[in-house]
Design a protein around this nucleic acid. Structure first.
Lengths: 153, 153
DNA sequence: TTATTTAGGTCAGCCATATTGACTTAATTA
DNA sequence: TAATTAAGTCAATATGGCTGACCTAAATAA
């Protein structure tokens, strides 16, 4: 049965091939976060701060609840990071139309940091993509998209 | 200049498109590690234990030094995790030919855990790849490979 | 209108993963 | 014989998570 399976499995679905992908995911994610991490370290922030800045930058007037559901962490975890970002004026809070909610936006300072951090990753990815044609890139994007849980897409 | 750049930049290299990839990397990595994490939690292990088990399983008779260079963590960080794995008999140590070194191998118990954890990720990836043709998969693999720092490939 | 739910906040304690720095032992190599 | 290497250990620290308990204020449902 095992032998039969091996015969019928296309090469690219072989366990060995898939294990290569597992490793690529691990190494590429590690290398991908390394650049911003170094910048963040200098201002005593961490990866968690980057995530918050990234998503607040992306969606202006995000609420706390929305941010929590994107990051999938508890509000207690978010609070330390967010309070630091607010205290140090990277993020500005305002009251929402529903007065229980708060809207988050990046300050000028926050936008600058966001840009500085994301640019590292954007350049990195752009440099990779430049080496490939549209067909390869389409395959990459489609498959990456499917790699995310349906619920989170 | 900015406008000219936009005109000359192929669509798939637009900042917006690249930001989508940044997000896909974040979400896919998170979802990718979720399954094993849940299993590990039950036996009071974490993601770090999985990494050690994975690479020891991959390369029999790995030395501590080699493992450290793959994981890129300090030996102090590794020690807690590795000692737990050795104490709980998932990993067996033996003295290398160079008697300063130690060789790491998975015990039967370790192999079983490795299989259980990796199978979650293998199935996940296989299910994704099954939806695509060889062309897409090739693009995906080639680009993922380039996403890893040259030094680490 | 009152009761319930929701959004957000906070305190306390805990755990996992990582770091730096200092120091030791034993084996190998120059 | 001296220097280097592989591994191990102790201590202190940072970061990023978690649970549980509890609070306030605002919106919504009964």
């Amino acid at each position: 049965m095992a032998d039969l399976n091996k015969l019928l499995t296309p090469l690219f679905l072989n366990e060995g091939e898939i294990r290569k992908i597992i490793e690529l995911l691990f190494f590429s994610y590690r290398d991908f976060t390394e650049g911003p991490d170094k910048v963040l370290e200098k201002i005593n922030f961490g990866r968690a701060h980057h995530r918050v800045i990234y998503f607040v930058g992306k969606q202006k007037n995000l609420t706390i609840k929305e941010l929590l559901s994107i990051l999938k962490i508890t509000k207690q975890s978010l609070s330390r990071v967010l309070n630091q970002l607010v205290n140090e004026k990277y993020i500005i809070l305002s009251v929402g139309e529903d007065k229980r909610t708060k809207k988050l936006i990046l300050s000028k300072k926050g936008q600058e940091l966001e840009k500085r951090l994301s640019e590292i990753q954007i350049k990195r990815i752009r440099n990779v993509l430049l080496k490939f044609n549209e067909m390869d890139i389409n395959g990459f994007k489609k498959i990456m998209y499917e790699m995310v849980d349906e619920i989170n897409r």
